[in-house]
Structures are given as C-alpha cells and as structure tokens.
Design a protein around this nucleic acid. Structure first.
Lengths: 192, 192
DNA sequence: CGAGCGGGAGAACGATCGTTCTCACTTGGC
DNA sequence: GCCAAGTGAGAACGATCGTTCTCCCGCTCG
C-alpha cells in the first residue's frame, strides 16, 4: 500500500482510528492530525466524512477478502479449505488491534441512520456467505452447510471481540469440523 | 412493567429508541419528549446519559434472561431445551423492532470509549454462556458443547440483523442439532 | 387566604462536531 | 523577478450535544 499517497494514507489512518475508537468517536480533526494532512487536503480528497467511512469499508472488504483467500489457498483439501476460514479468524483474533468485525461494528453504530453503511455491511456478509458456499460446493457438501459455517464464523467474531480472548476461533473450528463431517456423510471421521 | 412510573418509562423508552437508532444518535431531548417527562425530571432520575445507558443494559439483560428461560422451560427434554434457545431467537428475529443484539450493538458503539459498557456486555455474554453450559451439563454433554452453541447463537443474531431476515435462526438450529447429537454420542439420530 | 415549594417548559451554556473560509506563504512558469 | 495558482495552518461558523439555569404556574399547608 502506498502510504505516501495522501488519499491512501487518509483511508488507512481512518481505518485504524475507526477500528480502535469507533467511527463517531473520531472527529475529522483527529483524523487530519493522525494522517498528517491539512484539513483542506482532506476535504479535497473526500467530500464528507461519510465518504471516508465508505472508503474505509471498501478497504476493509478488500483486506478481508484477500487475507481470507490467501489463507484458504494454502490448504490442500476442500475440507481443510473450509476449516482454514477459522484459522484465519484465529490469527486475526490474536492481533492487538482486533476489536471485532468492522462491518458488524459499523452496522451497529451507523446502520440504523445510514442506509449506505447498512447496505454495504449486508453486501459484505453476503459476499462472505457466497465465498463459503463456493468452498462448500467444491467439498461436495449440501447447500445447508455454508450458512451454518458462516454463522459460526460470525459468532466467533463477536464472541472473541466482546470476551477479549481468541478462544472462540478454536471452539468454532471444532464445531465446524463436526458440521462438515456430518454434511459430507462421514460416518466415523476419526477412523475409530 | 409499571410505565406509569417515570423512571421505568424513561428506561423503557430509551431502550426502544437506542435499539431503533443507536445510542449516540438519540439525544436527551428526544428521549425526554418520547418518554413524556421534563428535562428536569430526567436528570432527577438519572445523573447522566451514561447512567441511562447502563440502566437500559440492565433492563435488556433481565428481559433477555427471563424471556429465554421462559421459552427453555417449555421444552420437555434436555436436548429440546438446548434447541429452545434457537426457537427463542427465531421468534425474536421476526419482531419488527429487531435490529440485532443490544449488547453487541452497544459494545460496537461504545465499548472502545466506555469501559462500563464493554464490561457489562462481557458479563452479559458470559452469563449467557454459563446458562448454556448449565443446560448442556443437564443434557450430559461434554464441556465443549456449550461454547459451540453459544457461538452459533451469537452468529445467528448478527447474521439475522445485518441480512434483515430471520433465516439464521433456523440454520443455526439445524447446526445445533448436529453439534448436540455429535456431542451426546448419538451415532444415528435419525434412526436410519 | 396566602406564602412557599416542587415541578414543567424551555432558554441558555459550554463543548464538540462536520464543514467552510481566511490568509499568509510557497512554488512554478514566463 | 514577478505574478498567479495552490497549499497548509488554523480560525470561524452553524448545528447539535449533554447538562444546567431561569422563570412561572399550581398545589399544599398553616
């Protein structure tokens, strides 16, 4: 990422600040100072705060999609690719900056008063569910598996954020194994 | 609930407004008007907005706990009691006023800047997990089942809120059945 | 009956927000 | 060297927020 470009630096800084403090708690002046730009340049790059919020959401979506896919691609089998989702979550939960899913948070904060934000959060989650559906189909699983794993992943994110521990990733992964094996019709996955 | 009491009416009204618009989006004057009290009375009952927020969280916790337990108690068997959690969610998601879990939302909105709110949300989720743990123990399930079902319930709440549909309750219930039967060592729950 | 007090309506206050404006300064082209 | 255009720093503006204060009405109690 080219943080020498003011626009990129603004969005990256806004992402960090919004994640750390919440969107409404971060004023334009604080963002201006943290990004090291003048207020004039800020409004030259973005017409309003809400347009910065949308740019941050786009950045988060790209970051999430690319990071998840990179982890998934390292897995060898279709089953392991489904489980890799939860390995990605586990690594994410352990980051110091982790404070829950940015889309859930922004939806909770602004979804009721900003249709833009609500719609973008909906599309992001839909995109994730489609991605899981794609992985599940490749594993030969019935259609009901993808929503189940998606719900597990969502729950792990909120649980880890509120509890402040990364345990939920491991617990969700164990549940996912059971659900995957049941959906794939594995009678005895342990071979016992 | 005695809504003739100003204090009760204030908290009930704040609960509705905060749920519908978010906490930060509802000012004290809007709350005053909706609750039908004077500003003087409002500050006579509560010293500050944050104390109202905490009172709303307490009300939500009581409402959630009682409503959930009432539904659970109607189920006959330990297994059905665990599944009743998701029936309770299903009924909740179908309400027009449903806009996600109030604790997840308040944590997302204020958790980063209000330790009080963050801590109360953590305690609420912990209390729910303990409740599920209690039900799981009565069903004779191993300890790992309760976190799995809790994560499913959390994920169903955020998924239903963002997607705007109650489907997640049904999907989570189906997943819960698989997890419960696996944890209870049921080899073939359908008898096929 | 009348003085005092509690409560309602809403103005006022200081802080903060998003946004715009001012102004001095730099810089690049001729 | 000089003028014009653009930039940065920050003051200013209007709106809104949480909170407090003022004023006035109506009720109570001696």
């Amino acid at each position: 990422m080219d943080t020498s470009e003011p626009r990129t630096r603004i969005v990256a800084t806004a992402d960090e600040l919004y994640n750390a403090k919440g969107i409404q708690a971060v004023g334009m002046d604080e963002l201006r100072a943290a990004a090291g730009v003048s207020l004039k340049r800020l409004y030259q790059e973005f017409p309003s705060k809400s347009s910065i919020v949308m740019a941050v959401l786009e950045r988060r979506h790209a970051s999430w999609t690319e990071g998840l896919d990179a982890t998934v691609r390292q897995a060898a089998t279709p089953r392991e690719r489904l489980l890799a989702i939860f390995d990605y979550l586990a690594a994410w939960f352990c980051e110091d900056s982790f404070r829950g899913c940015g889309f859930i948070n922004s939806f909770a904060e602004l979804g009721a008063i900003s249709p833009e934000v609500a719609e973008y959060a909906r599309k992001h989650k839909e995109s994730f569910q489609n991605y899981v559906g794609h992985l599940a189909r490749e594993a030969g699983a019935p259609a009901y598996l993808a929503p189940q794993l998606s719900i597990l992943a969502e729950g792990a994110q909120t649980t880890a954020a509120i509890a402040g521990t990364p345990d939920a990733a491991r617990q969700a992964r164990a549940a996912a194994e059971v659900l995957i094996d049941a959906a794939l019709g594995v009678e005895d996955p342990d071979g016992t």
